[in-house]
Design a protein around this nucleic acid. Structure first.
Lengths: 231, 231
DNA sequence: CGCGGCTTTGATGTTCATCAAGTAAAGTGG
DNA sequence: CCACTTTACTTGATGAACATCAAAGCCGCG
């Protein structure tokens, strides 16, 4: 299912996060030697809720979904993660198991860094710990604020919001292919699949977007923005 | 509004968190000298969203509410914080301003530790950074999971859930005084004040709880538990 | 004493989930 | 490669859950 390959040293890695800038050359070498560069193809599972955490996941390229499976068996997507994100930052430091499952929803390129190595680096290098604290705080804060934002919106506002997120921060284009099913959109913004479809259809009828299959084209950006903000 | 007083050294502080156990004696002395012990009386404001963060807040005793004021001016409570909690852990390390306001809902005793001192301690002492990362991750994770849990419940389930939280983890007694208004309960579990009142009345009629003003007495624990879990 | 905030209950309407039923698309095994 | 099964998508009808609006009593505070 997943296709792995090694690449060169971290020192001149073009995806190097500023988090690593505080590491000494020797420390970065340790990362270079122990990390594994891995490519996950769209649809493949990266880890499952409850599994032992053995590695930190640092994202280069692609898009992942983090989701929890709740009591009744339904999934709830907590966050979409893109380049420069650390996965498991919220768990890795206090629990041995993943608190959520992670799946690639685009072909994704990541680095796996052994958990123990990360622990050692933080112990050895306080500045690095500080950087991780910053990153971790920001991630947590973003998630909490985003969830609040979504819940204050009505359904039309929520759908408009994800479309804007996809067109903006994620794909940087008004025209894009949905990386997820309608059901997954529903899981991300806490509503039913039927209503996601219904509202997408409404937006189409109102000439706010064009839809053909998975392809979305945002025609009336201003109106969509207004719905996202007001709703 | 708030009443401050200094107390003795941190070394033999009975509320000392395990987070501080990794500090050297000299480092703990620095904390002792620079920390301020402060008591906030019920109802007083500790900080406001948008203010510059100058100190870390470490809680000894009491109960605080963390809330954000949203676009439309309505408050939303993100979390209740009790003893051993760090306030601002989610913000302090990456933003100069508070992301939420904090108010004491019980008389509360806290220590204020200068932000810069915390930064220095993390830089000097990697193990301490690791401890903070653990604490910070756990806090963030708890909030995210709790919010998800609440939203998956219906209104009766949500009210039952907070009552259980108050009777259990917080007050450790089936009989307790509500530290918050009905409106604040609503803000905590994302519903309207009217419905909080309505459901509390239902619970009273169903002989699940007794109410007299702010005092709640849980009569039928098992049923309340069932409603909280099923709803 | 009167005012504003908190609490309470009832009536009304809207939003949204659920159910049902059908089409299209995509994977599966012979 | 085709029949078969499953999964995704779509639309409409229905009802339940919940927000909103309205009105009144209560309490504490200046």
């Amino acid at each position: 299912m997943d296709n792995k390959l090694q690449i060169e040293t971290c020192k001149n890695c073009v995806w190097q996060s500023s988090v690593f800038s505080s590491l000494t050359e020797a420390q970065l070498d340790m990362v270079s030697h122990q990390k594994k560069h891995v490519v996950y193809i769209k649809g493949s599972s990266i880890c499952r809720q409850g599994e032992k955490i053995t590695h930190f996941i640092y994202m280069h390229k692609g898009l992942l979904k983090l989701f929890v499976t709740s009591e009744n068996g339904r999934d709830q997507i907590v966050r979409l993660s893109g380049p420069m994100d650390f996965i498991g930052l919220l768990n890795t430091f206090y629990e041995p198991e993943y608190g959520y499952s992670v799946t690639a929803i685009e072909n994704s390129s990541v680095c796996l860094i052994p958990r123990e190595l990360m622990y050692d680096l933080v112990r050895q290098n306080g500045e690095f710990g500080l950087n991780l604290l910053q990153k971790s705080s920001k991630t947590a804060n973003d998630i909490i604020h985003q969830r609040g934002l979504i819940h204050r919106k009505n359904l039309r506002g929520r759908v408009a919001y994800v479309l804007n997120e996809l067109a903006g921060p994620i794909y940087k284009s008004p025209k894009f292919d949905l990386p997820v099913s309608r059901r997954e959109i529903a899981e991300l913004i806490d509503m039913t699949t039927e209503n996601v479809i219904r509202i997408l259809s409404e937006f189409r009828k109102d000439r706010i977007i064009d839809i053909s299959g998975k392809t979305i084209n945002i025609v009336n950006t201003e109106l969509l923005e207004k719905i996202a903000n007001h709703g």
